[in-house]
């Protein structure tokens, strides 16, 4: 594994993530596998500081839904994507609610920076608070 690429400024919560099946109420870090239901964590979001979501294969995409569900439920701690991930996926990850990535191959920070600022507008609401173009259009015509 390469280094964690973090978009948060708070200190890293370094507790090891326990598998969901071993998670005890009050635990602060948990690891969610692709086939595990993110909604099971909703009662524990107050205690949790970091949720790691696995991407064992490039084709894996369930984690995007998991992250978004957790943000929709109000989680504000770190959501970390862990596994086979490339820098070019960063904007999808961030918009879906991730704010840290632990990839297998290192992320070049310069490329990451360009990737994250590439698209000046977005078409749909997600969890990052960006206004979709339909809202911008609405404001422009109001």
């Amino acid at each position: 594994m390469a280094e964690v690429y973090r978009l948060r400024t708070d200190p890293e919560h370094t507790a090891p993530a326990v598998p969901l099946t071993d998670y005890q109420p009050g635990g602060t870090a948990v690891q969610l596998e692709p086939d595990e239901d993110a909604r099971l964590l909703v009662p524990h979001l107050g205690a949790l500081k970091r949720i790691d979501i696995s991407f064992p294969k490039f084709r894996e995409g369930r984690g995007y839904s998991s992250a978004r569900i957790l943000r929709e439920a109000g989680f504000t701690g770190e959501i970390r994507a862990v596994g086979v991930l490339y820098v070019d996926q960063l904007s999808f990850l961030v918009r879906a609610g991730f704010d840290a990535v632990l990839p297998e191959t290192p992320i070049d920070p310069a490329v990451a920076e360009r990737t994250l600022t590439r698209f000046p507008f977005v078409y749909m609401k997600a969890t990052d608070g960006l206004q979709p173009v339909w809202a911008l259009r609405e404001q422009a015509s109001a």
Binding site: G61, Y64, S65, R68, S91, F92, L93, M124, A126, V133
Partner: peptide, 14 residues
């Protein structure tokens, strides 16, 4: 078309 373009949740579907 607009809604689905670069959709953050649905770009890595099964």
């Amino acid at each position: 078309r607009q809604w689905s373009t670069l959709h953050p949740e649905f770009s890595f579907l099964p």
